[in-house]
Amino acid sequence: MTSADTTADSLTWTPLTLEDVPALTALLNRVDQADDLGEPAEEAGTREWLTMPGRDLALDSLAVRQGEELVAVSLVDVHIALDRDGRARCQLLGAVDPVHRRRGLGTALFEHGERRAAELASERHPGTAAVFRASGGRDPEASAPAEGPLTGGADVRPLLERRGYRRARSWLAMTRELPGADLPAVDPDGARVSAPADTEREATRLAHLAAFADHWGSAPIGEERWTVLWSSHTARRELSTIAVGGEGTVLAYAIAMEDRPGVLHLALVGTRPEARGRGLARAVIARTLAAGARAGYASAELEVDAESLTGATRLYDALGFTREHVYATFEKPLD
Rank of each mutant, 00 (worst) to 15 (best):
D189R: 09
M174K: 06
A191Q: 02
D187M: 03
S170V: 12
A191P: 01
L172A: 12
D182N: 02
A191S: 09
L172S: 08
P179I: 03
D198S: 13
G190V: 05
A168V: 06
V193N: 02
E202A: 14
A181V: 06
P179C: 03
T175Y: 12
L172H: 12
L172T: 08
P196H: 10
A181N: 04
T199R: 14
R201G: 05
D182V: 10
R169M: 09
A185N: 12
R176D: 06
A168M: 06
A185P: 10
W171Y: 14
G190L: 01
A181D: 12
W171C: 01
A195W: 10
V186I: 14
A181M: 04
P179W: 01
S194M: 11
E200V: 11
V193P: 05
A195I: 06
R201Q: 12
M174T: 07
D182C: 00
R201V: 06
W171P: 01
R176I: 04
V186C: 08
P184S: 06
D182M: 02
E202W: 09
M174C: 13
A168L: 01
A168D: 02
E200F: 11
W171D: 10
M174S: 10
L178A: 03
D187T: 02
G190C: 03
R201D: 03
S194F: 07
D189L: 01
D189G: 09
P179S: 01
A191K: 00
E177T: 14
S194T: 14
E177K: 08
T175S: 13
R192I: 11
R201N: 07
A185S: 14
W171K: 10
A181W: 00
L178Y: 02
E202H: 10
E202Y: 09
S194G: 11
A197I: 11
R169T: 03
S170F: 02
T199D: 14
A191F: 00
E202S: 09
W171V: 13
A197N: 12
M174Y: 05
P188V: 02
D187N: 10
A197W: 11
W171A: 09
M174H: 05
E177R: 12
P188M: 05
P196Y: 08
E200P: 04
R201K: 11
A197Y: 11
V186R: 10
S194V: 08
P179H: 08
A195L: 09
A197M: 11
A195E: 06
R192Y: 06
A173W: 12
R176H: 03
T175M: 13
V193K: 01
R169Y: 06
T175G: 10
D189S: 10
